[in-house]
Amino acid sequence: MRVVVLVKHVPELLSQRALGEDGRTVRTSDDSALNEVDENAVEAALQLAGSSEGEVIAVTLGPSIAVDALRRTLAMGASRAVHATGDAFAGGDVVATARALAAAVRHLDGEAPVDVVLTGLAALDGLGSVIPSLVAAELGWPQLTVVEELTLEGQTLVGRRELDGATERWRAATPAVVSVTDSANDPRLPKMKDLLAARAAEITVLTHTDLGLADEEVGAAGSRTRVVEAAQRPEHPGPEIVTDDDGEGGVLLARYLLDNDLVGGAR
């Protein structure tokens, strides 16, 4: 089974995340890393490929520093990494991003058929969760998304998901697009020697023209949305704290809710 994992290099949750003058996410190599849930996608890909003597190819779209995310996937065991990069990609929204990622999948599919595209359920910076669906639409492939449990049955995939109060099990024939949650598996920790080897590993670099995309199809030019304003919100003034020393804490909580008209919000 030939599996392509789409990963993203994102600012770490504990860093001071910010938007620049252009409304784009500020990224630095010190504060950014492989999107955490993407490790679950890499793990799922390795398990799928491992059970069928296949290949895992990691793909990212991003500036030059995003190569760090690819190196992490190689250390985990991906056999190859592809970095779609270049100024033309900058400022892309979800539509432009999905178009470029789908083009990368098609590019790899042209070399040898791709069976599965795997992703994490969300990038923890944008939290859009729509890239898997848009890539599936671009490719015309079925999707198994937000999957908590993924199994391979012959040439078909079965995924279980728990959303909006319902549990669903779907079956999809390959090729298919799959997104996994962070409870789908426990990602393996790379060994030091693999981390070191990944630092020196060769990475395939592709530009938008390599992917057969025109200037106006990618980045800000290929987007249908534009950030018109981005502002940091004022610092939180800090909490009003009471201590339940004398057993009055519950009553004080009730009074706070009642005084602030917060009781009775039920539908």
């Binding site: 079965v158 319902a166 549990t167 669903e168 099990r169 779907w170 999809a172």
Partner: peptide, 12 residues
Amino acid sequence: PRGLELLEREVR
């Protein structure tokens, strides 16, 4: 979509 099938759906 081609090859997609809902095997089971249970509302909790």
